[in-house]
Nucleic acid binder design. Sequence first.
DNA 1: TTTATATATCGTAATATTGCAATATATAAA
DNA 2: TTTATATATTGCAATATTACGATATATAAA
Lengths: 107, 107
Amino acid sequence: MGASKSDSFSVEHNEMASLFKALSHPARIAIVDYLLTVDTCICGDIVNELPLAQPTISQHLKELKNANIIKGTIEGTAICYCINPDTIDKIENHFGVIRHKLKNKCC
Amino acid sequence: MGASKSDSFSVEHNEMASLFKALSHPARIAIVDYLLTVDTCICGDIVNELPLAQPTISQHLKELKNANIIKGTIEGTAICYCINPDTIDKIENHFGVIRHKLKNKCC
DNA sequence: TTTATATATCGTAATATTGCAATATATAAA
DNA sequence: TTTATATATTGCAATATTACGATATATAAA
């Protein structure tokens, strides 16, 4: 085997797992962090910020985009990336539910 | 290649990535969800709840334990698993910081 | 049109993850 | 001690991820 049995789980569980998978690599955490640090959304220099080759960064950006964690809009030759607040909401909400359920627990 | 270049990233970025990696599989999301659903922490029946073989579940539980997302204490022959609220705090705090930074952004 | 710059895609090697059968371990009950 | 029950570990095959060189694409400037 090796493929995860995603068909066996609920849509919601799969959705949350996909979101977390997109955030499960330090380079992608660093990208999100960097996008939040710079003042504007015009971010053509992610490649210079991280110790990875350009194709590798492009691949990580694609995964973040596919997971709807970031959005990219074309600005001339560069691409402007920024965080998608809706997805952050979704994740925060997930932990809000966990927090709420934890309140009624023995530990 | 294939191994992620974790040495090249900050300890904090690696830590957050590890937490998300532990949550990046639908079975592990389902386990956390189930632990929050049952009334008590005595949870010997996770195997019956999920469509996976016992060794597979054991492996997923181990990953959640290694990431400090769940704790397990021995209760006779069974093991009592429950969520570690401290780790939930850590993740919520991470998104709190993101949320705060997003407030000062253009998009 | 040519050149420069920014990003994406392809192909591929190295490594990691997933899932499970078989087996081991450990405690409780008989 | 023997048997039953619960969980962990081992070993391995199938698949996924990571990283990057080479190359493609696309827009801007010269």
